[in-house]
Simulated scan of single mutants.
Amino acid sequence: MLQIGSVVVENEVVPAPLAGISDKAFRLLAKEHGCQLVYTEMISDKALVYNNDRTLRMLDLSGEEYPVAVQIFGSEPETMAQAAKIAVEHGAALVDINMGCPSPKIVKNGEGSALMRTPELAFRIVEKVAASVPVPVTVKMRKGWDGSNVNAVEIAQGVVEAGARALTIHGRTRDQFYSGQADWNIIAQVVAAVQVPVIGNGDIFCPADAKRMLETTGCAGVMIGRGSFGNPWIFSRTIAFLQGKYLPEPSIGERIATAMRHLETVVRFKGEEIGVKEMRKHLAWYIKGAKGAARAREEINREEKLENVKAILRKFLQEQ
């Protein structure tokens, strides 16, 4: 069980909020595979406040099962508070503040993981957001900015004091991006330093990794990012594994059937042109490692029509 303020979920496995990944179709799949708490992609505070159409579509939670957390990013306390209010009006059960994104275009504006270099500003943002919304406010952050600036413990204590009701810690510095090994020891240090639930993130690629993280760090939950690419089964398999049950890896038939359904769902929500294009990376992940995957991927990347992509996937399955 994972309890964040008034939000209680029965299992401790959550999918990471990831730009270009955690859209409505992905969230529905994650829920289907047992995740009770899911997150939106990170959403710009300014774009929300200025009523940007594309951004408001990212905030469409209609038809989704409670609870959904909305992750916002920005660097101005007032604007972040306004954005948080809009998120709650659209159904956010939690508002998550992004202090972990390493992307150069985000950090150059002092947002994402750059906030770990300006602790006082980070604390003011959390304080302002927490005071402006009736739902729990959480923070996702990294180990620190770089190897010389590892300050996750200090930032964690400060944001909790400012009103954060839970934290997610990715065990890498901003400089590492997604390379090297995640430092789970920093997660354990944060767990020991604060009185709110801490969710551990980094290097969970199979159910046994999740169990090991929970046992070695004492964290309250595990967040799975890259391990779920083309692999929503990691959620259901991990939830089962933590309950002492073993679910087998999906067959190639199951993988293709789910890939097909994922594709159709994205096209339904975003239209054929955008949907087919956005699903190319996902489909490459679904078929990775199977015979003829490279050729099928090249064919898919040239296609713009839903039916043609489905035909490639059916042919690919026949050849296995």
Rank of each mutant, 00 (worst) to 15 (best):
A311E: 12
G180D: 15
G158L: 06
A81L: 07
A208N: 15
H33M: 09
L247Q: 12
A293G: 11
G63E: 15
G112H: 00
M213C: 13
T40C: 06
I300S: 00
D146Q: 13
Q320A: 10
L28R: 13
A220R: 14
I300L: 13
K128Y: 05
A25G: 08
A208G: 13
S62T: 13
K85A: 05
D96S: 09
A30C: 15
E278F: 05
M1H: 07
R255M: 08
G200W: 03
V38K: 01
C219G: 04
G200P: 02
R142E: 07
A210D: 03
R174C: 14
A192G: 09
E303A: 15
K108S: 11
L242T: 07
K310Y: 11
T40F: 02
D209R: 10
R117L: 06
K85L: 09
R27T: 02
E272V: 03
A30F: 08
N11Q: 14
L48W: 06
V222D: 03
Y286N: 03
Y286L: 05
R57K: 13
I199A: 03
A114E: 04
E65H: 15
D209Q: 14
A69K: 00
A210C: 10
A156T: 02
N98D: 11
V14Q: 00
A25E: 01
V196H: 00
N301G: 09
L242N: 07
V160F: 04
G289H: 10
C101A: 14
D146E: 12
I312C: 02
K143E: 13
A114L: 12
R314A: 11
I256P: 03
A130Q: 03
A284Y: 04
I204K: 00
R117V: 01
R142N: 09
R212E: 15
G230S: 06
E264R: 12
E298K: 12
L59Q: 06
G100C: 07
I97L: 12
V38D: 00
S228V: 00
G100I: 03
N52S: 15
G112P: 01
G244A: 08
T55H: 09
I252Q: 14
A84Q: 00
T265L: 12
K31S: 10
N109V: 03
T168E: 06
K211M: 08
V194F: 09
I43N: 01
Y39S: 02
M80A: 11
M58N: 08
I224L: 13
Q189V: 01
T217W: 07
R226F: 12
C206Y: 04
N308A: 09
R212G: 02
I287V: 06
V133C: 03
G5L: 06
S113H: 08
E307F: 07
V276M: 09
R268D: 12
N308Q: 08
A93M: 05
N149W: 15
H262C: 08
L28D: 06
V191L: 10
K310L: 10
Q71T: 11
I186G: 03
E111Y: 07
A81S: 12
E76F: 10
P102Q: 13
G230V: 05
I234T: 02
E120A: 06
V14D: 00
S113R: 05
L242C: 11
